[in-house]
Design a binder for these strands. Sequence first.
DNA 1: TGTACATCAGTGAACGCGCGTTCACTGATGTAC
DNA 2: TGTACATCAGTGAACGCGCGTTCACTGATGTAC
Lengths: 196, 196
Amino acid sequence: VGRRATKRQGIERAAIRLFAAKGLAATTIRDIATEAGVGEGALYRHWPGKAEMAWDLYCREVEAFSRAFEPVLAGNGRPLDKRLLAAVRFIYRRYRDGPDRLAFVLLARAGFPQQQILDKKIDPDQVVVRFLEREMDRGTLPKGDAFFRMSLLRGIVLQPVLMHRYGRLKTDPLRLARPVARACMAVLRQREDNPR
Amino acid sequence: VGRRATKRQGIERAAIRLFAAKGLAATTIRDIATEAGVGEGALYRHWPGKAEMAWDLYCREVEAFSRAFEPVLAGNGRPLDKRLLAAVRFIYRRYRDGPDRLAFVLLARAGFPQQQILDKKIDPDQVVVRFLEREMDRGTLPKGDAFFRMSLLRGIVLQPVLMHRYGRLKTDPLRLARPVARACMAVLRQREDNPR
DNA sequence: TGTACATCAGTGAACGCGCGTTCACTGATGTAC
DNA sequence: TGTACATCAGTGAACGCGCGTTCACTGATGTAC
């Protein structure tokens, strides 16, 4: 039963790998088809075009990430600083295990048209925003603008990844997890950080 | 005297504006030529090709930025936190005055081939690294890995710019200068932040 | 000062190339009777 | 169960398009005598 569409998975795997490694624009249909061992036309049996396929796969990868990431931040009952450290380690470990894939999930948004918007339930940034709002409600963190704070955390955590990816930082990011997490805590503990 | 090459400046201005606004890859030779009111061939009288021109203009823009930025960080005799705030304000003000241009200088490196390396004297990141090393020597800051710390600062300061540019942060970054600067200080004041 | 030639910025049609996409076709699988 | 037809994933040569670049040419400016 269901022997149809057997090559679709191969196309998806090849596409994700190539999008992640070379970027969206630099990956061609022929690249994907060749790596998947498939004709160029095969792709158009499953998606209307390259852009739609890329967005489809991007959403899927992002969702998989967020689904695994959210529980780490929620971390049943553990103190805030432990959970933050676990979250940073989670990201850096995923980066070590598959640098291209992590970069695709967290840094590839710029490659899509600006009007394309991720579902709020899937978007890793929104996962962090919701986490911060929850902590502020609980009183674990001083009140403030959750989105602005998320931006700061995002910058702190991902900049070392970027630097490592571009070959400018030699240290394995995982070894930096502790100081990075402490930097996050230092930023979060500040009061009245929103001038509105 | 010297009535030659009168259109070169026009080409440069058009190219910088377009590179900054649309990105390197999305800007075509014809775009530049049209905006500068020039034939497509004119460009090749001054540079070997598009890539060389882009890198040339990029270096020039980066140098102009660093030249103005360095004294703000050095800030004769003023206390560290005041200088940091001034530096953040400097960047955010430049962003407000010309978002594309600031983004071109500080965020466009990814568009160039990785082997292209900025001169250390020009590179804004290296300006910050030297600043941190100087402060650590003076004892104003605890000892640590200057490059790693620069990465954190870079992330903190530029992430809000990115978010604003992509339309996800509505607040004018200049209004966030104070909390951002305070976040930088909080990160810098930490001890033993390098696990090596 | 005038003349002949060299230099060089600038032109824009044309070229070659690589890209995303199309399309007529194939062959295996599912469905109707 | 067998037969006729519909469906659909997959093929790969061909198409159209936009890109960076080339090149024969122009005309103004600099230089040699």
